[in-house]
Amino acid sequence: MTESVFQETTAEPRTRAVPLSHLSLELGHFYMEDFEAGRGHLRRHFERVRPWADAARAATAAASGDSRPRISTCFLIDDYFTRFAGPAALVPLLLEEADRAGIAVDYLARESGCAVNGKVPVAEAVAGRIVEEPPPGSYGTRPPATLTGWLANGERSPTAHAPQAMRRAVAWQPPSETAARRHSVFLDVELWSDGPDGQRTWSCPFLAAVWQLARLGLLRNRGEAVLVPEPHTASGFPDDWDELPSLVRLNPHADPFAAYRTCSVLPNRFLPVEHAVRVILDRIEVEPEALRQAAQRATRESVPVPDSVADRVSYVFYAGA
């Protein structure tokens, strides 16, 4: 006689753990205009990146106490906002110039994968985890970010209204940052825009925030990891971006894609975008089990990891195009 066993689904493991490196080192984030600028532009980029990438490696070794820390490199290409040529034409050019500078790219990612990966609406799922913190003294007059598509790190200036009879007009007040240090650096971030046809376009800062969560190994969809690297086994690259996986492992011997911390080496024109990324990360309720798994593993390895997700992210901004 066969005996049936019934189990609560909540009793089953729901969140899959992912392997973690010590550092995910981003070697660049290119838009199509970067490729249009020609091979020389790519060459200058990697020449500027090389010394900072070496410094990030040395800093990680010192912080982890490991002479050979696990460090993976990645590169993000924008195929979401604009498309120019295809992977077959652009990726070999990118890898040639990286190799010329003595830099190995372990993983290649498409930005559109941060919006939708296969059938998983990644950006929409992350947007659903936004938790707003009303600034002290506010009265809930500002609509939530889930309705407006705007997220601030404080309180906006009040909107001027026509005064009612026998009442004075409200005087202008400055915006204020919630966690300001002496003076405010107020930022209001556009997360998305909706076109007349109802098509939603996610903003660059929001997709960059999703990208950071993926690199930290904190994205899940029904317990499964999102943006899992697929090995590059073909002799070349496809002509169409949609035929290239969202995340490709170029180096079969690479350390894990996700890591306890991230570092991105970028030109300084990305500084405003990455400021917005930190604001967004501070308002995302990350999958608790994914956070717990990373914390437990870091403790076992004696790797110091900040509680704040935003503080696990670091940057090097270099001057120039």
Rank of each mutant, 00 (worst) to 15 (best):
R156W: 02
W241M: 06
R297E: 15
E224A: 15
V279T: 14
D106M: 06
P121H: 06
E124Y: 05
P245C: 07
A88K: 14
P87G: 12
V303S: 01
L244R: 03
F257S: 05
Q199P: 03
R83E: 02
G217N: 05
G65N: 12
H232E: 02
T201F: 08
P174D: 13
P136C: 06
L213Y: 03
A61C: 15
L94N: 00
V91I: 15
P196G: 14
N117M: 01
R168W: 03
D66V: 07
F206W: 01
D307R: 07
G113R: 01
A56Q: 09
P252R: 03
E12P: 00
Q7E: 05
F237N: 04
H41P: 00
S235E: 10
L108H: 10
P256G: 12
P304S: 13
E26V: 12
V170M: 06
R200M: 01
V277T: 02
T15K: 08
L244W: 00
A123W: 00
F35V: 06
A162W: 12
F257T: 05
P19A: 12
A11K: 04
A295K: 11
P252S: 08
Y80V: 04
P136W: 00
N221Q: 14
T15Q: 08
D240M: 02
A295T: 13
A85R: 15
R48A: 15
V210S: 13
L216A: 13
A209S: 06
A180Q: 13
S184Q: 06
Q199E: 06
V226I: 05
L281T: 07
R249W: 00
C74M: 11
F6C: 00
P135L: 04
P87N: 14
R57D: 02
D54H: 08
F6R: 07
F270P: 00
D188P: 05
Y318M: 09
V105I: 15
C74Q: 13
P135C: 07
A234S: 10
S21H: 07
H183F: 14
E96A: 13
G154K: 04
M32Y: 05
Q173T: 09
V185N: 12
T9M: 06
R215C: 13
D307V: 15
D194G: 00
G65D: 13
A145K: 00
S21C: 10
A294V: 06
G28S: 10
L23M: 05
Q199G: 05
T148R: 06
A225D: 09
E155T: 08
A152T: 11
D194S: 08
E124V: 01
V286I: 11
H22G: 09
Q199R: 09
D79L: 03
R16I: 09
L227M: 14
V170D: 10
R312T: 13
G128T: 02
E287P: 05
R261A: 11
G38N: 07
R129C: 14
E36L: 14
V248R: 11
Y260K: 08
A115V: 01
R220H: 02
P238Q: 00
S67C: 07
L216S: 14
L94C: 04
I77P: 11
D239K: 12
V279A: 10
E133D: 07
E224I: 08
A123T: 03
P19Y: 03
G223M: 04
L219E: 11
L213T: 08
P69Q: 01
M1G: 10
P288V: 09
A63C: 04
H232Q: 02
A162I: 13
H29F: 09
T9R: 11
